[in-house]
Nucleic acid binder design. Structure first.
Lengths: 212, 212
DNA sequence: CCATTAATTTAATATTGTTAAGTTTAAAGT
DNA sequence: ACTTTAAACTTAACAATATTAAATTAATGG
C-alpha cells in the first residue's frame, strides 16, 4: 500500500511526538521503541525515519516540546504576578515544581537526559531556553530592587535559585530524596517555601518592598 | 579453554566494576557494553553473568561504589571541621560539588540514573546513604544551634540544602546551566558561596556563633 | 581416582535501531 | 492530458547488543 492517499494522510511528526511523550510517561525511556511509537501512530517503524533522523532526534523533539510547555507555564505566572517580585519568585518556583512532578519522565528527558549527542546541546542557547531564563533573572532583579537577596550578580543568584528548585525536583523524581513517606507534591511546596523563608530573611532593613 | 587455572584466576567482580566505571567516565553509558567490559577485564561477555545477574546489576554495583566513595569524602570533611558548623556546611558543599564535577558520569549514574528497575531503589534506605544523610542533618542542627538557618525541621532544611548543591551540579554536568563560558569548578564554588552568604544572612541577632 | 560442582568458553537467540529496495500516490512540467 | 520526478510509505534485510544454552575444563571432596 506504499504511499497513502490524501484522505489517509497523517501528521506523523506531530503524532509521533505526542505518542512518544505518552509512552515515555507511561513506561519510561525503554518503552519508547520505534516499533511501539509507529504502532501507536499507525504506521511502520521505518516511516518515522522520513521525519526524524533517528530515535534520538525523536526524543530531542519531545525534549524541545517540553521546554516550550515549561515556558508557557512560566509566562502565565509572570502575567498574574505583575508587580509583586516576591510572589513571582514563589509562584514561579511552585509552577516549576508542579511541572516537574506532573511530568516526571518528560522532565527527566529535559534535564537529566541520557548522554546522547542529540541531547547534549544547552537549551539556554536556544530561543525558548533563553526567554525562560530571562524571566527568572528579571524576577531576581525586581526582588533585589525590593530589598531581597544579596547584591550579587542577578545571573548568579538566578542560577542558584534554579538549582535549588531543580535539585529538589530531580531528587524527588528519581527517588533520591531522603524524606520518605511524604506526598511529593507537598514536599515540593515545602521546599519552595523553605527557600522563600530563606529569601525573606535576607531582606535588608531600609527596604523598599511593601506587601501589595 | 573453559575454566581458568588458579594462576590465571581473576577477580572479575572487582575488575568489572572498575572497568565499567572507567568506560562510563570515558564514553558515557552507551560505551559500557558487556562486550567492552569483558574485553577490558580479559574475559568473555557471558562470563560476567556469573557475577552479575545482568547489565543493570553491573551498573548498580558501580552506582553503589560511587555512594561509598562519596561517603568517604564527606566523612573526611566532618573530621577536619569538628566544632565549626558553618565551615562544615561550606566544605561539605564544596567536597560534594568537587566529587560531582570530577566524576560526572558516575555522579549521573548515582543521581540521574536511567529508569531501570535495578536503579530505582532509594539509596537512603541503605546504610551508606543513611550515614551520608545523617552527616548533613547533624551539620544543620549544629548550625541552627549556632544561630544560623530558620528554625524548621532539620531534615527539611537538609533536603533543601542538598537540593541546592545537587541541582547546581546536575545542571552543570548535563550542560543545562545558563552560565556559559565559565570554568565549571569555579561556578560550582561560587554557587556554594552564594548559598553560604544566604545562610550567613539568616543568623539571628543574639547569636551563639563565634568565628573560630 | 571418580563424581560433582564452579567458572568459563563458544555458539545460538531475541530484541531493537537502522538501512535498502521496491511500490504507490501526489505534484510538476510540457 | 501525459509523462516524469519526487515524496511517503511498505516490507525485507542488516547490524549491534544483551542474554541464554550447550559444551568444556579445572578444582574439590569423598
Amino acid at each position: 500500500m506504499a504511499r497513502p492517499k490524501k484522505e489517509d494522510e497523517k501528521d506523523i511528526p506531530t503524532l509521533a511526538v505526542a505518542v512518544a511523550q505518552r509512552l515515555l510517561e507511561e513506561g519510561g525511556q525503554a518503552q519508547v521503541t520505534m516499533a511501539q511509537v509507529a504502532d501507536a501512530v499507525g504506521c511502520s517503524a521505518p516511516a518515522l525515519y522520513t521525519h526524524f533522523r533517528n530515535r534520538d532526534a525523536l526524543l530531542r523533539a519531545v525534549h524541545d516540546a517540553g521546554f516550550e510547555q515549561l515556558l508557557r507555564d512560566k509566562l502565565a505566572v509572570a502575567v498574574r504576578t505583575q508587580g509583586d517580585s516576591f510572589a513571582r519568585l514563589r509562584e514561579g518556583g511552585l509552577a516549576y515544581m508542579a511541572f516537574a512532578l506532573e511530568n516526571p519522565a518528560l522532565y527527566r528527558l529535559m534535564f537529566n537526559p541520557p548522554p546522547l549527542p542529540e541531547l547534549e546541546g544547552n537549551p539556554f542557547s536556544g530561543d525558548v531556553g533563553l526567554r525562560s531564563l530571562e524571566l527568572l533573572e528579571n524576577a531576581v532583579k525586581a526582588a533585589q530592587a525590593d530589598g531581597f537577596l544579596p547584591d550579587d550578580e542577578p545571573a548568579q543568584i538566578a542560577f542558584t535559585l534554579w538549582s535549588l528548585v531543580h535539585g529538589a525536583a530531580s531528587l524527588m523524581i528519581q527517588n533520591r530524596a531522603p524524606l520518605t513517606g511524604c506526598d511529593p507534591a507537598r514536599t515540593g511546596r515545602e521546599v519552595v517555601d523553605t527557600a522563600m523563608r530563606l529569601i525573606a530573611s535576607t531582606r535588608s532593613k531600609g527596604t523598599r518592598y511593601r506587601t501589595p
